[in-house]
Design a protein around this nucleic acid. Structure first.
Lengths: 194, 194, 194, 194
DNA sequence: GATGAATGAGCATTCATTCAT
DNA sequence: AATGAATGAATGCTCATTCAT
């Protein structure tokens, strides 16, 4: 929780070895998240990355910092997908593709949902990405409303929550690929105006 | 993890004071689950209940024992609801009422989903209740299939997973009452044959 | 450690059921000692004996009380053996038989050595038995000295210690019967005047 | 019981402060063993050494690790003594000196007997030392057999057990120095062919 | 910057002993 | 007398975080 008392250095480019360590830590953490272990224990990560704990703490003072660093790549990826979806000819297909991408990433990265649902972010970049994603999501949704694909009372926040719910449902089961497809279909059908 | 070597004594009625303590422990644990804390730490519970740790362990040798004791009441309640739903005139209404009850209980008791999704149970009673609930769920679902309310490929296990997912979605949001209603509607609409 | 505040009842005969319980506790404890478990945990004993812990404590306020109650029978048995050995024609044979009996009982009852080597006893009876045993041991030894079987500087306390040592050596090995015989022979040969 | 998952890192020389702490822990543990307390409780040791529990665990993940670390020095010392004894002119004197050394160390270190008699070791080094010691013991014994000093049926394992037994006998008494000498003499005399 | 040893609070669990029933 | 529920100190062990090297 404590902030470093160092001069708030200006985000200059890291020294080569520092950058290498940072990447190693991120890579290891990513694997752990992907394997379903969301505990992100600093010592464990340090050991697996072959660096000292101190190094992990230097790059990521809190678990939240690390988590956001990992997740932000995925947030950016989602943002790209959302923008691509906006370009899509078919509103329905665009929406579905986007939501499928969301679902896949939520399943691949246990940390993503955690960050998405967090009330506060450690980094403004995270907040910015989340806001942009939300906005894109909202635009897609507005288009879907206009196309009669989604009932009026559903907002982007509902979509976000429902996607996290679907992820949960899929995660509980065995055959994730099949369930993802099945439950997404149910969701999209259910969203249509009655 | 170690099991007590005590003979599986015949569970006669508890002494008055023992029963009082047991209830106090359960009450405290229930509150914790309701508040969203599913960690169920023995020391914490003992402190909050105003009893010694040993007392908690006497009544519930493992966290799992305690968890199942709490959840079994709710499983039984759900079972009753499921049976009532089977009696309902209207298949659609019966199903909806039942699922709403499931959702409410899942929201009120974070332990419920945990037990429901656990592969193994500590007590046979838990397994029995889960099996009976599943069976009732399955009967309700069969009836819904026949009534054309639910698409054919959806099984009782899907329902169980989807309900856990919906719970998750609702829990993330603010106004649980409204969201529960809204998302349940979406689910039921989505489940209908295309 | 605390003594009961009850009137120091005059050791009147126990009520029939009390006597039965006392025997059950002793029987269970005996088995535990024989099985090599010298921990004598009150709860464990109570459970195995089918009585409440309180009952065990009533009969044997401390672990030491219980231990001595168990061991005293064996001390008495040894005393009988020692007296029989004193009657024996052959000093050497008498001594050997006695020491063999000591060894067998030490092996059969892990508590025996503990009591034998304790500095203080809980019951005067134990002290009396130990003293009598020591005296008998001493008489046997004196006779052995006169018969030139044991070197002069060896006292009854040495014998006691050496027997506990031999017991230990035998206990470490596998084939207790064979080792007991072998090591006892070595001891007796070693004790002879140089 | 759980083993650390750390890579079996190459045991480079410790940092100065780490080495100091390690030694402090070992010193405290040594004293405890010497005082006859073989329980080696981690918290107790940490407190007495003036370090945190974690430090003890870092250096010695299990009680067994600590125990073997302490004992291995003594095993090595014994091995040296055994080899010196093999060089001795006089077989009898060599054997006696060696056994005396064994006895002294067993008395000075309650852990030694425990490790010596353990079926399994945590470290291969311990197993190696034990095996080498046993082999040296065996060679000394063979030489004693040839010199007519020890009866044929006695093996190195008997010697090991008997030494533990003698240690026990000495430990029970008061004047350890005198008893060690006395009982060792009895043992050696007793071992001679009849 | 990097390291990793050290710290100690915190949770799990056991067991000797007391005392209300 | 008997019961066994309750107690809580004691011990084991983990892990997030700090800081000397």
């Amino acid at each position: 929780m404590k902030k470093r008392e160092e001069p708030p250095r200006e985000e200059g480019p890291l020294r080569a070895d520092a950058a290498r360590n940072r990447e190693r830590v991120l890579a290891v953490a990513r694997e752990l998240l992907a394997s379903g272990d969301a505990s992100l224990q600093m010592n464990q990560i340090a050991r697996a990355a072959g660096v000292g704990v101190g190094t992990v703490y230097r790059h990521f003072p809190t678990r939240q910092d690390l988590l956001e660093a990992l997740v932000n790549e995925h947030l950016q990826a989602l943002l790209d997908q959302a923008r691509a979806a906006e370009e899509a000819e078919d509103a329905r297909l665009g929406l579905r593709r986007f939501l499928r991408a969301v679902l896949d990433l939520l399943l691949a990265d246990v940390g993503l949902a955690e960050v998405l649902n967090a009330q506060r972010d450690a980094h403004t970049q995270t907040s910015r990405l989340k806001a942009e994603l939300f906005a894109a999501n909202d635009r897609l949704l507005k288009r879907a409303h206009r196309a009669g694909l989604v009932r009026a009372e559903i907002g982007a926040d509902d979509i976000q929550r429902l996607m996290c719910g679907i992820e949960h449902a899929v995660r509980i089961g065995e055959d994730r690929r099949a369930l993802a497809e099945r439950y997404l279909t149910i969701l999209l059908d259910g969203l249509r105006p009655a």
